[in-house]
């Protein structure tokens, strides 16, 4: 027995030593790190004062804001960015009537087929159409944008960490370079054709600043400041990314409330079933 145990331990010991040996390079690397200095982007996004209307478990959509955001998307973003998983009919969810949606859809041109000769043509959109892409394909999109690909915006608020605040921050991130950070990494400069944006992960973004004050004229009379437009487009894109967000939260309250009651009654039932099986102070087992 002792011999067998000794043998096993000896074998395991050898294995252990070899394993640890193979881990050595990492340890050396740790002791003598070679980490370059670089200009770091802002990982902490900003949020609008008072937050968004859809924030938190009790949030709701602000349809006025969503409609303003839609206007910003239509007049600014849609020049380069698609919204391919959203259909015009979905606009009814942000407060447009069926007739308005029909008219709105018709104001967009979508690819279609000529019923007479089958050639590819542009036709006015129908409510059932999806938002059209501004470019025919990725090659064209890159060719128009200095080889950068404008991402589809449908899911942008979900496809980035802290995406809602990321979009809001990015829209307002075209600031001046911080002189202190510049001093720390003197080689840092923004290459030609790119723009400094401290919320973008590699600091330099291909998209020029877009939300210049007054670039859109809101139909509801709201003043179109950069901050206002950033809020509105963020809200619209949040809705576009997850139209069921508010319904989900409302359903959640109901379900959790029900489950809490069910759990409570289940617990009381459990207590009743087990009464007499648990040891209590001064209990005498009557067997």
């Amino acid at each position: 027995m002792t011999i067998r145990l000794g043998g096993i331990l000896f074998g395991l010991g050898i294995t252990g030593v070899l394993l640890l040996w193979s881990l050595l390079p990492g340890a050396l690397n740790f002791a003598f790190p070679t980490k370059p200095d670089y200009y770091a982007f802002q990982e902490k996004n900003i949020a609008p004062e008072g937050g968004f209307s859809f924030d938190g478990p009790l949030g709701t959509w602000d349809t006025q804001q969503l409609q303003r955001g839609y206007q910003v998307y239509k007049e600014v973003c849609s020049a380069c960015h698609s919204l391919k998983f959203v259909a015009f009919r979905n606009l009814q969810e942000i407060g447009y009537t069926e007739a308005e949606v029909r008219a709105e859809a018709a104001s967009w041109e979508v690819p279609g087929i000529d019923p007479k000769d089958g050639s590819v043509v542009k036709r006015p959109g129908l409510p059932t159409d999806m938002f059209p892409s501004p470019y025919a394909n990725e090659v064209e999109a890159r060719a128009f944008n200095n080889n950068a690909l404008p991402p589809d915006l449908t899911l942008i608020t979900k496809a980035r960490n802290d995406g809602v605040h990321y979009v809001y921050s990015l829209m307002q991130g075209y600031n001046e370079v911080d002189p202190e950070d510049q001093a720390k990494s003197p080689d840092f400069e923004t290459p030609a054709g790119l723009y400094f944006n401290e919320y973008f992960y590699n600091i330099n973004i291909a998209m020029p600043p877009q939300l210049l004050d007054g670039i859109v004229t809101y139909s509801d009379g709201t003043e179109a400041t950069e901050e206002q437009m950033a809020q509105d487009i963020t809200a619209f894109l949040t809705w576009a990314g997850e139209p069921t967000l508010i319904k989900r939260k409302q359903t959640g309250w109901f379900v959790i409330g029900f489950l809490l009651f069910a759990t409570f009654f289940g617990f009381m039932s459990y207590k009743t079933v087990w009464a007499g099986k648990k040891k209590k102070k001064g209990d005498v087992e009557l067997v």
């Binding site: 939260k249 959640g252 309250w253 959790i256 289940g266």
Partner: peptide, 18 residues
């Protein structure tokens, strides 16, 4: 015992899902 505990875990689960 399993029943009421399932209720508790489902409540937690519902919180995450919703």
């Amino acid at each position: 015992k399993d029943g009421w505990f399932l209720g508790l875990v489902l409540t937690l689960f519902a919180f995450v899902v919703f």
